[in-house]
Design a protein around this nucleic acid. Structure first.
Lengths: 329, 329
DNA sequence: CGTTTTCTGGAAAACGTTTTCTTAATCATA
DNA sequence: TATGATTAAGAAAACGTTTTCCAGAAAACG
């Protein structure tokens, strides 16, 4: 393997000079810079990131922690969108993304988690969909051992930022538009998780709307489960005008149930996953750009790692109607 | 950061002794081992993988190269399944998976690719869905600079193994069962890519079956595109009894088209992705276990990296009928 | 009892960078 | 012209491991 040493020899300069050229230090003369660069080209030198990381104590390694259910709901495309967004941005910034699943760390105590990430030389974490019940992960974040960006969970500190859309507003807006257009009077709302951060925010949006419109909204917790949404729909939909769900996946479960029950009710979703295009002619939903969200998370983490301090970032959403043909073309 | 040095001091042994304990070397007495281990525990020492990698020249880093655009549609769950399978196995074996997308390297020449992977200190590659046209990647594999496992592409060499199911047999079997059950006489076969490895194998399965059954099979290339399958279906399905597709995604495109045309034809797919459960009451398809495939690829790569030589691995498939309720529960 | 073998554990040289000092040389200033 | 300021480049000490080689002690052997 050709090293910085060989380059130095060939260019007739010191090792440190080569390093300075490599890292774009200012005080290197144009001539030396040229000499070094031609030597690099001639030798086909590639800097060794491992050695660089050891010496500089900066690995640029970031863990993307995902809540992936290995067996249930494999059609959920959101994690993949996060991965794509994060990896592309990381490449741009010269960072490395190590993907980690909740299942891999859920049995660990805080100490073990810290050891795990430290042994991987990880400097920062992007945690997606942290819920209130994840005590250990919360403590890990609070430990201050890592810089953290939370997607879809609150929490701002010296070492922690938070990124999400305005869930309350989005739920309010999409529901308002949906109710107005479908002219519905009685609504079944299939909420997310009890005690879930985004679930509560979305629920709040529904509350605000119900007060504004003077509607009472009948709601049940669907736990973001397609199957549970199906059950709830089977049980309650007949007596309601329309169904609003806190996620597209639940909306699809509801839609499928309605088809099986052979009754029609308009359904409104949340997220804008492409599977929603398969559910009905055109489905009202909130479109979140998960790739952009993840990319912003990586950028924000880079900022934290350079000494910036935590902040809350609210990204925009869109109200859309999803159609099959739009999705596949 | 507490280092091996601190451990050595605390345990009153030499640095090298601690290292030997860490790496389970044989010639360390039970007593010293204990001393070192308690020191490690007391200090909360975590070995630094970067330093270890630099010194031992083994990084354990593997790139998982994915064609996320193989199917343009974002509902394609296959890459995610590969990621899950690979990462879980990698954790088990103490390796690191770096996910890389075709899009990130498709413009590069061979030299640049080599530099890219080398600069990331990557020792091995798992390439999914390499096609014949990917000249640069083929050359990269042939360069011998990395150990490689190819998923769904042939190629065995000193540094290369290949993993896939028996596509010919699988296509033959599922089509035979489907044709027999549906008692179809005239078949529309929507094939994969022209010159695609698995596409050709599956096509061969269809040829064998058509000879055996004395059926002529009308086939068109769908390029694994849902939209293209839709077009082909719209154009030809009316005159045929049944449709067989070289992928589930195309089967879904066909199914959707049939619904829009308001005619019924049985459809048969290939892959066993869960989206297939959404397409019809129960869909014939070949189930590939992508997680297991990826896990085997990681294992195989580990074997190659330890000096084993390349081989071809054929994994089993299953014939199934996919149902919505099975998928979501 | 002397000699050879086996077993433990330590010393020290890598591994390929970054970074902090120094030093020498050039430049501007009065 | 002497003085200080600025600039460019080199020397060398880290960073935290692994690994090779060596020494001493204990065990085995004749």
């Amino acid at each position: 393997m050709v090293s910085i040493r060989d380059v130095a020899k060939r260019a007739n300069v010191a090792i440190s000079t080569v390093s300075k050229v490599l890292n774009h230090y200012p005080n290197v003369s144009e001539e030396t810079r040229r000499k070094v660069n031609t030597a690099i080209a001639e030798l086909g030198f590639v800097p060794n990131s491992i050695a660089s990381a050891l010496s500089s104590k900066k690995t640029g390694r970031v863990a993307l922690v995902l809540d992936v259910n290995r067996h249930v709901q494999t059609v959920d495309e959101i994690p993949m969108q996060y991965i794509i967004g994060a990896i592309n941005k990381a490449k741009e910034l010269g960072m490395d993304i190590i993907t980690v699943f909740f299942t891999m760390i859920q049995e660990m105590g805080v100490e073990e988690m810290i050891r795990y990430f430290q042994s991987q030389s990880i400097e920062g974490l992007i945690i997606c969909g942290l819920s209130k019940q994840d005590t250990m992960l919360h403590r890990l974040v609070k430990s201050g051992k890592f810089k953290v960006v939370l997607i879809d969970a609150p929490g701002v500190a010296e070492n922690t930022s938070s990124i999400h859309i305005d869930n309350t507003k989005a739920q309010y807006e999409v529901a308002k538009r949906f109710i107005t257009e479908s002219n519905s009077k009685s609504i079944l709302y299939i909420a997310g998780k009890k005690n879930g951060y985004v679930s509560e925010e979305r629920m709040l949006g529904m509350k605000q709307l119900s007060e504004e419109l003077g509607l009472t909204i009948f709601s049940r917790v669907g736990n973001f489960s397609e199957l549970e949404a199906r059950r709830i729909t089977m049980k309650y939909a007949a007596k309601k005008d329309a169904i609003i769900c806190a996620s597209d996946l639940m909306a699809i479960g509801a839609m499928k149930a309605l088809i099986d029950m052979d009754i029609y009710r308009p359904v409104c979703g949340f997220d804008g996953i492409s599977l929603m295009g398969y559910a009905g002619k055109q489905m009202h939903t909130v479109k979140q750009d998960f790739q952009t969200i993840a990319a912003s998370a990586v950028e924000e983490l880079a900022r934290l790692m350079e000494g910036g301090s935590g902040q809350e970032i609210i990204l925009p959403h869109k109200l859309i109607r999803m159609k099959y043909l739009d999705v596949i073309s």
